[in-house]
Simulated scan of single mutants.
Amino acid sequence: MSTTRDNPRTRPAKAPLSRAAVVTAALALVDEIGFAAVTMRRVAQALDTGPASLYVYVSDRDELMAQVYDLALAEVELPGPADGDWRARLESLVGRAVGVLAGHDDLAMVALTGVQTGTNALRLTEEMLRLLREGGIDDAHCAWAADLLDQHVISSALERAGWLRDQRRQEATEQAMILKAERELDSVIEALPPAEFPTLHALRGSLTTTGDSDARAEWKLRVIIDGLLGGAGA
Protein backbone atom coordinates (compact mmCIF):
# COMPACT_ATOMS: atom_id res chain seq x y z
CA MET A 1 0.00 0.00 0.00
CA SER A 2 1.44 3.34 -1.03
CA THR A 3 1.57 6.28 1.33
CA THR A 4 1.50 9.93 0.49
CA ARG A 5 4.37 11.80 2.05
CA ASP A 6 3.75 15.31 3.28
CA ASN A 7 5.57 17.48 0.80
CA PRO A 8 5.74 21.26 1.14
CA ARG A 9 5.61 21.49 -2.65
CA THR A 10 2.23 19.74 -2.81
CA ARG A 11 0.54 21.48 0.12
CA PRO A 12 -2.05 24.13 -0.71
CA ALA A 13 -0.49 27.55 -0.44
CA LYS A 14 -1.42 29.43 2.71
CA ALA A 15 -3.23 32.70 2.27
CA PRO A 16 -0.82 35.55 2.88
CA LEU A 17 -1.04 37.13 6.29
CA SER A 18 -2.38 40.64 6.56
CA ARG A 19 -3.98 42.83 9.20
CA ALA A 20 -7.39 42.21 7.62
CA ALA A 21 -6.84 38.43 7.62
CA VAL A 22 -5.84 38.43 11.28
CA VAL A 23 -8.85 40.52 12.33
CA THR A 24 -11.28 38.46 10.23
CA ALA A 25 -9.94 35.22 11.71
CA ALA A 26 -10.28 36.61 15.23
CA LEU A 27 -13.90 37.63 14.65
CA ALA A 28 -14.69 34.15 13.33
CA LEU A 29 -13.18 32.69 16.50
CA VAL A 30 -15.24 35.01 18.70
CA ASP A 31 -18.34 33.62 17.00
CA GLU A 32 -17.11 30.03 17.34
CA ILE A 33 -15.63 29.79 20.84
CA GLY A 34 -16.60 33.05 22.55
CA PHE A 35 -14.90 36.36 23.21
CA ALA A 36 -13.12 35.35 26.43
CA ALA A 37 -11.59 32.22 24.87
CA VAL A 38 -9.94 34.00 21.94
CA THR A 39 -6.20 34.37 22.47
CA MET A 40 -3.37 35.38 20.19
CA ARG A 41 -2.31 31.74 20.11
CA ARG A 42 -5.78 30.56 19.04
CA VAL A 43 -5.89 33.15 16.27
CA ALA A 44 -2.43 32.09 15.11
CA GLN A 45 -3.51 28.45 15.03
CA ALA A 46 -6.56 29.35 12.93
CA LEU A 47 -4.23 31.05 10.47
CA ASP A 48 -1.70 28.19 10.54
CA THR A 49 1.09 30.39 11.78
CA GLY A 50 2.90 31.25 15.00
CA PRO A 51 1.75 33.86 17.53
CA ALA A 52 4.82 35.97 16.87
CA SER A 53 3.64 36.53 13.30
CA LEU A 54 0.55 38.36 14.53
CA TYR A 55 2.54 41.05 16.32
CA VAL A 56 3.55 42.47 12.96
CA TYR A 57 -0.06 43.60 12.58
CA VAL A 58 -1.29 44.23 16.15
CA SER A 59 0.59 45.08 19.33
CA ASP A 60 -1.45 42.86 21.66
CA ARG A 61 -4.82 41.20 22.22
CA ASP A 62 -6.45 44.47 23.29
CA GLU A 63 -5.60 46.13 19.99
CA LEU A 64 -6.73 43.05 18.09
CA MET A 65 -10.07 42.96 19.87
CA ALA A 66 -10.59 46.67 19.21
CA GLN A 67 -10.11 45.96 15.52
CA VAL A 68 -12.46 42.96 15.74
CA TYR A 69 -15.09 45.13 17.42
CA ASP A 70 -14.82 47.69 14.65
CA LEU A 71 -15.08 45.00 11.97
CA ALA A 72 -18.30 43.75 13.59
CA LEU A 73 -19.75 47.26 13.55
CA ALA A 74 -19.37 47.28 9.77
CA GLU A 75 -22.46 45.04 9.79
CA VAL A 76 -24.62 47.83 11.23
CA GLU A 77 -26.65 49.41 8.45
CA LEU A 78 -27.23 53.11 8.97
CA PRO A 79 -30.92 54.07 8.85
CA GLY A 80 -32.14 56.33 6.07
CA PRO A 81 -35.12 58.57 5.33
CA ALA A 82 -37.30 55.53 4.68
CA ASP A 83 -36.89 54.57 8.36
CA GLY A 84 -38.82 57.62 9.54
CA ASP A 85 -38.05 60.84 11.37
CA TRP A 86 -34.91 61.51 13.39
CA ARG A 87 -36.23 59.66 16.43
CA ALA A 88 -37.29 56.57 14.52
CA ARG A 89 -33.88 56.50 12.83
CA LEU A 90 -32.08 56.90 16.15
CA GLU A 91 -34.07 54.06 17.67
CA SER A 92 -33.36 51.95 14.61
CA LEU A 93 -29.63 52.72 14.78
CA VAL A 94 -29.44 51.73 18.43
CA GLY A 95 -31.48 48.57 17.86
CA ARG A 96 -29.33 47.49 14.92
CA ALA A 97 -26.12 48.08 16.87
CA VAL A 98 -27.43 45.99 19.78
CA GLY A 99 -28.46 43.19 17.43
CA VAL A 100 -25.12 43.08 15.62
CA LEU A 101 -22.99 43.12 18.76
CA ALA A 102 -25.18 40.56 20.53
CA GLY A 103 -24.59 38.23 17.62
CA HIS A 104 -20.86 38.16 18.38
CA ASP A 105 -20.86 36.77 21.93
CA ASP A 106 -19.45 39.22 24.51
CA LEU A 107 -17.56 41.33 21.97
CA ALA A 108 -19.29 44.43 23.33
CA MET A 109 -16.99 44.10 26.37
CA VAL A 110 -14.35 45.82 24.26
CA ALA A 111 -16.22 49.11 24.39
CA LEU A 112 -16.32 49.10 28.19
CA THR A 113 -12.61 49.76 28.50
CA GLY A 114 -12.09 52.80 26.31
CA VAL A 115 -13.22 55.02 23.48
CA GLN A 116 -13.41 53.15 20.18
CA THR A 117 -11.95 55.14 17.30
CA GLY A 118 -12.14 52.65 14.45
CA THR A 119 -13.64 53.70 11.15
CA ASN A 120 -16.94 51.94 11.69
CA ALA A 121 -17.28 53.06 15.31
CA LEU A 122 -16.78 56.65 14.19
CA ARG A 123 -19.31 56.15 11.40
CA LEU A 124 -21.95 55.16 13.96
CA THR A 125 -20.96 57.94 16.35
CA GLU A 126 -21.20 60.52 13.58
CA GLU A 127 -24.72 59.37 12.69
CA MET A 128 -25.82 59.20 16.32
CA LEU A 129 -24.58 62.72 17.04
CA ARG A 130 -26.17 64.04 13.87
CA LEU A 131 -29.55 62.57 14.82
CA LEU A 132 -29.30 63.89 18.37
CA ARG A 133 -28.62 67.40 17.08
CA GLU A 134 -31.50 67.07 14.64
CA GLY A 135 -33.73 66.10 17.56
CA GLY A 136 -32.87 69.27 19.45
CA ILE A 137 -30.15 68.12 21.86
CA ASP A 138 -27.85 71.10 22.30
CA ASP A 139 -24.21 70.79 21.35
CA ALA A 140 -23.08 71.07 24.97
CA HIS A 141 -24.88 67.82 25.85
CA CYS A 142 -24.64 65.82 22.62
CA ALA A 143 -21.49 64.00 23.75
CA TRP A 144 -23.13 63.00 27.06
CA ALA A 145 -26.25 61.87 25.24
CA ALA A 146 -24.24 59.74 22.83
CA ASP A 147 -22.29 58.26 25.74
CA LEU A 148 -25.54 57.32 27.50
CA LEU A 149 -26.87 55.66 24.36
CA ASP A 150 -23.55 53.83 23.87
CA GLN A 151 -23.82 52.46 27.40
CA HIS A 152 -27.34 51.29 26.61
CA VAL A 153 -26.11 49.57 23.45
CA ILE A 154 -23.26 47.82 25.27
CA SER A 155 -25.30 46.61 28.25
CA SER A 156 -28.20 45.49 26.08
CA ALA A 157 -25.88 43.64 23.69
CA LEU A 158 -24.14 41.84 26.55
CA GLU A 159 -27.47 40.86 28.11
CA ARG A 160 -28.80 39.53 24.81
CA ALA A 161 -25.55 37.71 24.06
CA GLY A 162 -25.84 35.96 27.41
CA TRP A 163 -29.38 34.90 26.61
CA LEU A 164 -28.28 33.57 23.23
CA ARG A 165 -25.47 31.56 24.84
CA ASP A 166 -27.88 30.05 27.34
CA GLN A 167 -30.32 29.22 24.57
CA ARG A 168 -27.64 27.32 22.68
CA ARG A 169 -26.38 25.55 25.79
CA GLN A 170 -29.85 24.54 26.97
CA GLU A 171 -31.19 24.00 23.46
CA ALA A 172 -34.23 26.02 24.49
CA THR A 173 -36.23 28.79 22.91
CA GLU A 174 -36.06 32.31 24.31
CA GLN A 175 -39.69 32.08 25.41
CA ALA A 176 -39.03 28.85 27.28
CA MET A 177 -36.09 30.44 29.08
CA ILE A 178 -38.13 33.51 30.00
CA LEU A 179 -40.91 31.35 31.42
CA LYS A 180 -38.38 29.35 33.45
CA ALA A 181 -36.82 32.52 34.88
CA GLU A 182 -40.23 33.96 35.73
CA ARG A 183 -41.27 30.79 37.56
CA GLU A 184 -38.03 30.71 39.54
CA LEU A 185 -38.44 34.35 40.59
CA ASP A 186 -42.09 33.78 41.45
CA SER A 187 -41.23 30.88 43.74
CA VAL A 188 -38.53 32.94 45.45
CA ILE A 189 -40.87 35.87 46.11
CA GLU A 190 -43.64 33.55 47.29
CA ALA A 191 -41.32 32.20 49.98
CA LEU A 192 -40.37 35.65 51.28
CA PRO A 193 -42.05 36.98 54.43
CA PRO A 194 -44.62 39.55 53.21
CA ALA A 195 -44.02 41.76 56.24
CA GLU A 196 -40.34 42.15 55.33
CA PHE A 197 -40.78 42.37 51.56
CA PRO A 198 -44.17 44.02 51.04
CA THR A 199 -43.25 45.75 47.77
CA LEU A 200 -41.90 42.60 46.15
CA HIS A 201 -45.14 40.85 47.05
CA ALA A 202 -47.26 43.76 45.83
CA LEU A 203 -45.49 43.79 42.47
CA ARG A 204 -45.08 40.04 42.21
CA GLY A 205 -47.37 39.76 39.21
CA SER A 206 -45.57 42.35 37.12
CA LEU A 207 -42.10 41.25 38.25
CA THR A 208 -42.73 37.67 37.18
CA THR A 209 -44.45 38.49 33.90
CA THR A 210 -41.85 40.27 31.81
CA GLY A 211 -43.86 40.08 28.61
CA ASP A 212 -42.42 40.59 25.15
CA SER A 213 -38.65 41.19 25.26
CA ASP A 214 -38.73 43.42 22.16
CA ALA A 215 -41.44 45.58 23.71
CA ARG A 216 -39.39 45.90 26.89
CA ALA A 217 -36.30 46.94 24.89
CA GLU A 218 -38.31 49.50 22.96
CA TRP A 219 -39.76 50.91 26.19
CA LYS A 220 -36.33 51.32 27.79
CA LEU A 221 -34.93 53.12 24.78
CA ARG A 222 -38.02 55.32 24.53
CA VAL A 223 -37.61 56.35 28.18
CA ILE A 224 -33.94 57.19 27.62
CA ILE A 225 -34.68 59.37 24.60
CA ASP A 226 -37.59 61.05 26.40
CA GLY A 227 -35.20 61.83 29.23
CA LEU A 228 -32.65 63.27 26.82
CA LEU A 229 -35.28 65.50 25.27
CA GLY A 230 -36.53 66.60 28.67
CA GLY A 231 -33.07 67.60 29.71
CA ALA A 232 -32.05 69.07 26.36
CA GLY A 233 -31.95 72.60 27.72
CA ALA A 234 -30.61 71.80 31.18
Score class of each variant (00 low, 15 high):
V58R: 07
V58I: 12
V58L: 04
V58H: 13
V58S: 00
S59Q: 02
S59F: 01
D60L: 02
D60A: 03
R61E: 01
R61K: 14
D62K: 11
D62L: 01
D62H: 07
D62N: 10
D62S: 09
E63V: 10
E63M: 06
L64Y: 11
L64E: 04
L64H: 10
L64P: 06
L64C: 07
L64V: 03
L64G: 12
M65W: 04
M65R: 08
M65N: 04
M65D: 00
M65K: 06
M65E: 06
A66Q: 11
A66G: 15
A66S: 14
Q67V: 00
Q67K: 12
Q67C: 05
V68T: 08
V68C: 14
V68I: 00
Y69M: 09
Y69F: 15
Y69S: 13
Y69C: 05
D70M: 02
D70W: 01
D70S: 10
D70F: 06
L71Q: 15
L71R: 14
A72N: 09
A72H: 09
L73N: 07
L73P: 04
L73K: 08
L73Y: 06
L73R: 10
A74M: 01
A74H: 13
A74C: 06
A74S: 15
A74Q: 13
A74I: 04
E75I: 00
V76F: 12
V76W: 10
V76K: 08
V76Y: 12
V76P: 12
E77D: 15
E77P: 01
E77A: 15
L78T: 10
L78V: 10
P79H: 09
P79Y: 07
P79E: 09
G80M: 02
G80I: 00
G80L: 00
G80W: 00
P81G: 13
P81Y: 03
P81F: 04
P81K: 13
P81W: 03
A82S: 11
D83R: 12
D83S: 14
D83A: 15
D83N: 15
D83L: 05
D83T: 08
G84P: 09
G84N: 08
G84W: 05
G84V: 09
G84D: 10
D85N: 15
D85L: 06
D85Q: 05
D85M: 05
D85G: 15
D85F: 05
W86C: 08
W86H: 14
W86V: 10
W86S: 15
W86Q: 09
W86M: 06
W86R: 09
R87N: 12
R87Y: 01
R87A: 13
R87K: 15
A88S: 15
A88D: 14
A88W: 10
